[in-house]
Structure formats: structure tokens, C-alpha cells
Design a protein around this nucleic acid. Sequence first.
DNA 1: ACAACTTATAGTCTTTATGACTATTAGTCG
DNA 2: CGACTAATAGTCATAAAGACTATAAGTTGT
Lengths: 220, 220
Amino acid sequence: MDDLSIDSVIFGFSNELKVLLVKHAEGISKGKWALPGGWITYDESLDEAAYRILRLLTGVKDIFLEQLQAFGSVDRFPNKRVVTVAYYSLVKDEDYNVVAGFTASDVRWFSLSEIPSLPYDHKEILDHALEQLKTKIKQEPIGFNLLPKKFTLLQLQSLYESILQLKLDKPNFRRKMLGMKLLIDCHEKQDNVSHRAAKLYMFDEDVYRSLKEHKFVLDW
Amino acid sequence: MDDLSIDSVIFGFSNELKVLLVKHAEGISKGKWALPGGWITYDESLDEAAYRILRLLTGVKDIFLEQLQAFGSVDRFPNKRVVTVAYYSLVKDEDYNVVAGFTASDVRWFSLSEIPSLPYDHKEILDHALEQLKTKIKQEPIGFNLLPKKFTLLQLQSLYESILQLKLDKPNFRRKMLGMKLLIDCHEKQDNVSHRAAKLYMFDEDVYRSLKEHKFVLDW
DNA sequence: ACAACTTATAGTCTTTATGACTATTAGTCG
DNA sequence: CGACTAATAGTCATAAAGACTATAAGTTGT
């Protein structure tokens, strides 16, 4: 379908929130960094197309991925009318491994502060994705998708701080997080740190599913 | 663009939440009630297309309208691959007036309990729209778009009850609503009621805009 | 072995919001 | 004028949030 594309905002986290961009190897915007994207084929659904592109780029599958919305300004794409369906996804550092090729000459993570100027309406899409991520993470515990399986409370806290762009109080954060019973104590501690080691926790998917109805509101 | 359409979920409110459906006068699903929709032309953006369709059907403009998302299962449409971009909008009873024609043999409001079986994936789209409306109305005071300019607190409360599908306590609802200072006292009372008349209020858009940052959380 | 430092974790206190109520008031209808 | 209906006011107990202080458990350097 030559008037319909997918563009994906792929988030990662290591110390701070990052976004995966590709450098176009060919086409109109050759040499520019842009959101990874591609054309939708006739025999795949939108979601399938988004997963395909994510897999091609990061080798990751079975991951959090959600549609943002369609973008269709008349002049968003040069010389041709193209509507794009934007997706965003959350990728664990440990799962990710770069896969080159795919019409892209380069791929890498950018932290939010170093994002270069983007072609088309990609800046707008990225901004929407950030907004959506902020909103969503207050509603549902999707942040875990960005962290390794086992993590400390401080890691979790900086994730929230990084996404919501604010400072949180450590003891209060602990209280709230532990209070909702979604964390499993691994009975392990982190190591290789030059200070008191923190307990490691895991996200308890089962409890989460059973509490799905229950609200998960973080009104920070 | 013959592979890209718009479908709109248009909400109205009078005593209960309603949805506007059209009866198709021609085409594959002739005679069936469905969501109002149409093709996107080359020279209009997605939003413009959605507004155009809304205007054609209800005569309404300058109204709340927001994109839901794109729907693109491979087989959602018979014989042809069609991706549709779904919108939802909120229409005041007082503004609305039916406009016939437009490839539709009939148009009318359906309350949620009387929605007939819908063609394509329109049921799925409607369900998404309802979910989105529920989520959104807890976050932002968009409900006012469904009520007349001046309304009573009880009207507002039944609107919330109707959308969120729950029973609220009257005094508590008052306290909370008045507490967020978004209502202007009209210094008028309703009339033609066979009981004590309630005060009429208006939504204060200016205060709202200035409080935009401030949270508007209704965690009921 | 101990002081200095860093981060984890526990706990306190005050303020505010919520939910479940009861009570009173203002009006209509017969 | 009394019954009825809905509006509006107010109370009280509970729970959560936010701002803290305090202590514990490690590390590193001397």
C-alpha cells in the first residue's frame, strides 16, 4: 500500500529515557536521522507491520507495542500523499541487540536531549509518543517493560522521574510502590556497587492481571 | 484515496449516552446501520475529513473531535484492503440538527443498550471509543461538550454516571465538582420542574485553560 | 579498625481528599 | 397544609499524600 506507512517510536532506558533512530541510507531524506518506519504490505495488519519493523531493527519480539494514532496532514510527506500510522514500544535493554541493514545505514539510541532535527512530521510524532507514555505510565505499570527483569526501587524511581520529568521523594515512592503489591521480592541484592546494596524486585504479572480492574493511579 | 476511510463515533447525551448511526442506502452493507464514515480525499487532512463528515451529518461545527486510532486488520473490509481512521466526537443536543442524504437513507441516535449489530469492525471501533471516552472524561472535563450551555449539577452527575457506568453520591459529587472551580454560577434556576429548582451552572473555559497543568483527576 | 560517605530502608506527623452518612431547605402537587 | 421530591449543607471516620527525620548497611580511604 504505497500511501500508507508505519512509523515507530521505540523507547529504551538506561539511566535515562532513550529513543531509537535510524539513519536513512537512501531515498529523499538520505543521511538524516529519523524514526524507524516502513510500508505496510497488503497481507499484514497494522499491528503486524509494526511488529515486523520493530523486529527487523532490534531483534526483539513479544514486547510492549501500542498504536499511537494516524498522522495525515496533506503535506506531511514531499511530493506524494502518505498517511502514516504511528506506534510506540518499550524495549528492555537486556533483550535488545542491534540489527543493521534494512535501508538504514546506521541505528542508535538517542537520549531526549540529543535528538537531532527530524524529517517530515517525526518531531510531532515523537512528542505525541512522549505525551502518551507519560499518561499511560500513570495509569498502568508499563514502565517495567523498560527495565531488566530484576531491578531496584531506585532504578524504578529514576525511570518514573525520567519519563514524568520530575523529582520524587524516595521514601514516599517506596511506600507507594510496595503498597500496591505488584513487586516480588527476589531475596537478592545488587552487586558491584560501592555502597549499601539494594534489594532486587521483579514485577508480578499475575497479581497485576488479577488486579487489572483495580485502579493504578499515580497522580504525581 | 480508495484504501483509506474515516469512521466516526459521534456521542450525544439526553438522559443517557447515545451514539449516532446511519443506515446505508447503497453499497455492500445496504440497509444496515453503521458508524458514519466516508473516504478521505487527497486534499484534506484526516482531521478535516472527520470534521467534514461530522458536519454533513449533524450540521455541527467547532465541536470536540479527536482521533481514536487507525484500524487495519487485513480482512476488516470485504473484497478489498481498507484501513480506516476512527474518530470520536461529542455533540451538544442543542446544537445538533439532523441532515439527511449523504448516501444514507436514515440517521438516528441509539442509546447504548439498543445498538444493533454493526458491519465490518464497527463494533470494535465503538467499544474502543467508549473506553477512550471513559478514560478521557476522568482526565479532562470534556463532558461539558455533551451538555447544554447551562446545566444543573444533577445533569452533570448523570452524565458521568452514564459514561462511567456507576452510581455516585450526590453531596460528594457536588463537593468535588464545585471544589475544582470550573463551574460558573449563572445565578439562574431551572424551571418547569415539579420540585425544588436547581441552580444552573456553566463551564468556565478560561479558568480551565489556565489550570490546564493542574490535574483533573476523578478516580471513581 | 575506624571515620567519612553513600545509598537503602524505616518511621513520624500534618494535611487533604474521599466515601458514607444525616440533616435541613426549597419548592410542587394534591 | 401535609406529603413528596430533589437541592443543598454539613459531619465524621478513614486513607493517602507530601514533607520530613532517623537509622541501618554497606564502601572506601587512612
